[in-house]
Amino acid sequence: MAATTMAQALNRALRDSMTADERVLVFGEDVGQLGGVFRITDGLTRDFGEDRCFDTPLAEAGIVGFALGMAMGGFKPVVEMQFDAFAYPAFEQITSHVAKMRNRTRGHLTVPMVIRVPYAGGIGGVEHHCDSSEAYYVHTPGLKVVTPATVNDAYTLLREAIDDPDPVIFMEPKKLYWSKEDIELRHIDEPLGHAAVRRHGKDATLIAYGPSVPVALQAAEAAAEEGVDLEVIDLRSLVPFDDDTVMRSVRRTGRCVVVQEASGFAGFGAEIVARIQERCFHSLAAPVIRVAGFDIPYPPPMLEHSHLPSVDRVLDAVDRLQFTDEPDHRYLTGAHS
């Protein structure tokens, strides 16, 4: 069996969805002849024709607003935003219209569509090409937000996103585009909203999504060598959020670290931690700790390694989970003065 990359899995998902449903259209900037700057739409125009996969003018609000109109007209647009930060011009269309159309019209007008957003860093990209923008979308009721971390999930989640009756922000971790797995891509028919336990463990739970999942898994392997048995949850779907899988794990382990690449302040990880303490307080043996990007604009590429949550930073956080009776000195009054 040949190894498949995440990029190829996404391409296959688009192909299979386009074959299965002729209402599915792919459009955006450079997605036609070129196949997208990351080649996710490679060959779609050639194989399905320009009616099914086409280039648009360079205007992100235009792409999303136009897609919404097409969805009103019965098509299922899958649009590509070229990079995370270049989706911001479309923010008004996404938050004021795409997210709200079903609700505003009391279910009469629905706009199932997928907005693909390559996101996050770790690829040596210059500024505006490495943002982790998920918090903006998860904060907007009406949107679903999913992000794959494995090759097969890239395939399955994108197929599900396209089939979904609601608009989906599909966030693709750029640094994993070239990750490979020796697998036969399988479509698992399961609605969005389920987290996956990637590694079972009993001492603490690591919660991660998208680009942070491989970091969490590596940390768990390293911890295992020191005799600490970590469970790793890959959220996959940020909205809907799988409280059940998360809480069951944390209640069992009693300890938890949340890992995200985005800046920590008011980020999605904060939501996860809040939910855990509301629901699992009496099962917790230690405060839940976040490992996140610093609260700085994404740094220049030669400095990004200092910014990104690393395996060591995750392991340090695990060390602070009060496995001994020592309190966490970092947060004691006066510790910073």
Partner: peptide
């Protein structure tokens, strides 16, 4: 379409729907 208050945003929806109608 629903009456639109975010100024001019509906012009894009109108355009997308018009294109969809022609495509059909």
């Amino acid at each position: 379409a629903p009456q639109c208050t975010p100024l001019s945003t509906q012009t894009l929806h109108a355009t997308g729907l018009a294109y969809a109608l022609r495509r059909k």
